[in-house]
Design a protein around this nucleic acid. Sequence first.
DNA 1: GTCGAAAGTTATGTACTCCAAACAAAATTT
DNA 2: AAATTTTGTTTGGAGTACATAACTTTCGAC
Lengths: 185, 185
Amino acid sequence: MAQDDCGLSESLEDYLEVILALEKANKVARAKDIADKMGVLRGSVSGALKTLSEKGLVNYAPYSFITLTPGGMKVAREVTRRHRVIRDFLERALQLSPERAEANACRMEHAMDKPSVDRLARFIDYINRCPRTGPDWINAFVNYYQADGPDARRCEQCLRQCQSEFPDRLAALSGRSDDDAGEGG
Amino acid sequence: MAQDDCGLSESLEDYLEVILALEKANKVARAKDIADKMGVLRGSVSGALKTLSEKGLVNYAPYSFITLTPGGMKVAREVTRRHRVIRDFLERALQLSPERAEANACRMEHAMDKPSVDRLARFIDYINRCPRTGPDWINAFVNYYQADGPDARRCEQCLRQCQSEFPDRLAALSGRSDDDAGEGG
DNA sequence: GTCGAAAGTTATGTACTCCAAACAAAATTT
DNA sequence: AAATTTTGTTTGGAGTACATAACTTTCGAC
């Protein structure tokens, strides 16, 4: 949909994603499991498998097991990764509930192209690894969105705490885990 | 699509968004302008307008001007806001090109529900207003995603700079623009 | 007012996705 | 091995969205 996958519809992307998950769990995918997992009837699955088979993305013959072709595997992995990156952002950075994060990721995965998702993944990395932010900064976000704006007193305390950790954080960047930076007060 | 708008399709959301933009620019929307702006033929617009009219979202009679009803205006504003928030995030935080940000926002606006977009808007606020981050932190992201990981030397310099600005930043939180916090040094 | 271009509308057809239910094959049970 | 259940397939119909093309209305030029 997003200029990747050579014009695969959202629906077909979903089928590939589900087939990959079932392959990982059960070695092969069965039409009924696909239908159950996607909330559609078995009849709908048959049609989708026929289409995916014509596109060379699944190995499929009537009444046989279903597996992904190498090409289908590639697409399925891409879609699954998009899903995972987006859900992580929604759940960890935006701190949405797991259910809401999942529901939104399911739709957003078809709306974001690969460069955007790649950049988002880097952004999450950046937040986690930059000494100015990190997990504690993310956790403090809850104080912000629950209030009308920043709380000066809380911010002051947060800044002091963060500042005291700067040497450690900087040291951690280089791979050193101990606090041997020698600059902390 | 995303449980808002009482089950309005992506396409119809797009129509409302475009009609709102044309209303703002030209007082009223005309079918041809809608068609041009959306890249569809005039015939397709007639059908959509009929549907939107039945749903009570546009004032529409054949061969007449087109305006949004109060209900349609509400939905159109919501969709437009979703679009703007998402595009801002993609363009300013992720630092995607304006074109890519716009293209992705066009699709993502239909995939994200209101609570998620609201949270995203707060997140952007948080980045901009938190003394630990702010615009300079966003700008430093480019150094991160262009490299394989963090650059310890650059990080050290960034931390020092940031630290020196803490008093000012804290003061700015309370609305004071001068550095009279008296704690820096 | 009449003519003609521009704008709008109404079929008709295609593509996609899904459901519903009838039907066929496979696997289990006995 | 026959009957039953489960699983898979096929067919027909619905809803959405759009293109194409023929037709109608509107509006400005004359």
